[in-house]
Write a protein that binds this DNA or RNA. Structure first.
Lengths: 233, 233
DNA sequence: TTGAAAAACTGACAATTATCATTTTCAAAA
DNA sequence: TTTTGAAAATGATAATTGTCAGTTTTTCAA
């Protein structure tokens, strides 16, 4: 669904690559971009297809995953409001190597190749942000490689819950104190890199130890210190 | 050990970021950089220390690894002649997050922060190569994450041997037909993400199946098709 | 050449994790 | 509210991989 969303009073402008744009360019960008509302579960792009520009997430959450040898998803990362989606493929000028799916209703702004290139030329400092962003993603990926190769599932799950605690932080911290994770057990398994059953068993252990509480599908994270101890970081 | 190595007639110039430099800048770079010979096993930099510039590898091989929670090495990648070392940390302006050690006698050229920055300013297209390089490393890292999370050790070892086949390709393909891998079993384990004993057992299986031959520490890769079949890519 | 020291190898066993089959619970649509 | 399909949970079992202790082989330097 196509909607309107102005860049000049965007709620995530300060967090994004575009925070240093002059007002005139922000107004111009508002005209040129396309804002699309994706329903939970909808695919934004699929591995193997060609990128025509980049996305900027205004609202919602996106999961990015690769499909492994046996057709199983491996979740690579989450995209949060203010993040850019599709940078790597854009700069490599190659097809997407992973798939992006909304895990909540999400508002995405699409900026096509030419318009983004225009901004890159006018604001070379964006390039530095791109390098910094890719560098951070690369270091995070290397940390994950080390973790997957060396640490047991229990530790990785505890670590993942700590990450999810940040990702699912309540919007108004005053009212709700704890993060509530609304990912499916399967998604958590595809993030930790293990079988769904293993996640279910470990989550009920964590529940018995009062580290988390489980109400139906929702996981509330209660004891950060305890999870940190198990994560063994 | 400090040696001299001119940039203008460098044997890996065409493979490197600096291939498009004007002659005058190459001559200038030759004056400014420091070339150092590292013996096999010597450390080039250690995680946690501060980068003061970048390295360009002229000859030899470098392993880059992270140290995990239990002190175990996880080899992230190898640096080959023509590759730049230390890019990520340089651009993030943070401390090194991994350690680099020579796995063969290696000749490295060090370019300090100011001199590299000068070249970046004069040749903005280098920035694009940097982005492309980081993007490729990121995609490779994500593939490795998926592999570690989803595939058994046997497949990962076969895949790793195929990678090592490229890395240890003989210099003159006419004389020697097969790649001879001179990594220790421990290094292979730290690359595949498993225990040394598991690697030893699987390697002798592969030997029985005539996929490789083992002479002391040296592994010769014989059957690429067979390894590909096992790797299940 | 020889004598450590390090690396490679082997076997037994234990721990971790995956798989599969089945039941129960939940959540969204009729 | 009821229905129904999907997700979560559970149990039994098997496969994979790790650990530890000990032996053999290789490498490298004296």
């Amino acid at each position: 669904m196509v909607v309107r969303q102005n860049c000049e009073n965007c709620n995530v402008l300060t967090k994004s690559f575009f925070s240093k744009l002059a007002k005139i360019d922000l107004l111009d960008l508002s005209e040129k971009k396309n804002c699309i509302l994706y329903k939970k579960g909808q695919t934004i792009f699929t591995a193997g297809t060609r990128p025509n520009g980049i996305f900027c997430l205004n609202k919602g959450k996106i999961k990015i995953y690769k499909t492994g040898a046996y057709g199983k998803e491996q979740i690579i990362r989450f995209v949060l409001p203010g993040d850019i989606l599709g940078l790597r493929s854009f700069f490599c000028d190659r097809n997407y190597t992973s798939t992006a799916v909304a895990i909540e209703d999400s508002l995405l702004c699409f900026i096509n190749r030419q318009d983004f290139q225009f901004l890159l030329n006018k604001y070379p400092q964006i390039t530095n942000s791109v390098i910094a962003s890719l560098s951070n993603l690369l270091d995070e990926a290397n940390i994950k490689i080390t973790s997957l190769a060396q640490r047991p599932v229990r530790e990785r799950l505890a670590e993942t819950l700590l990450t999810l605690n940040k990702i699912f932080k309540p919007d108004s911290p005053s009212t709700a104190k704890h993060s509530v994770v609304t990912l499916s057990r399967k998604d958590i398994a595809n993030l930790v890199g293990t079988a769904t059953e293993t996640i279910i068993r470990l989550l009920s252990e964590f529940k018995s130890d009062n580290l988390i509480s489980i109400k139906g599908r929702k996981i509330t994270i209660l004891d950060l210190k305890g999870l940190n101890r198990i994560a063994n970081l």
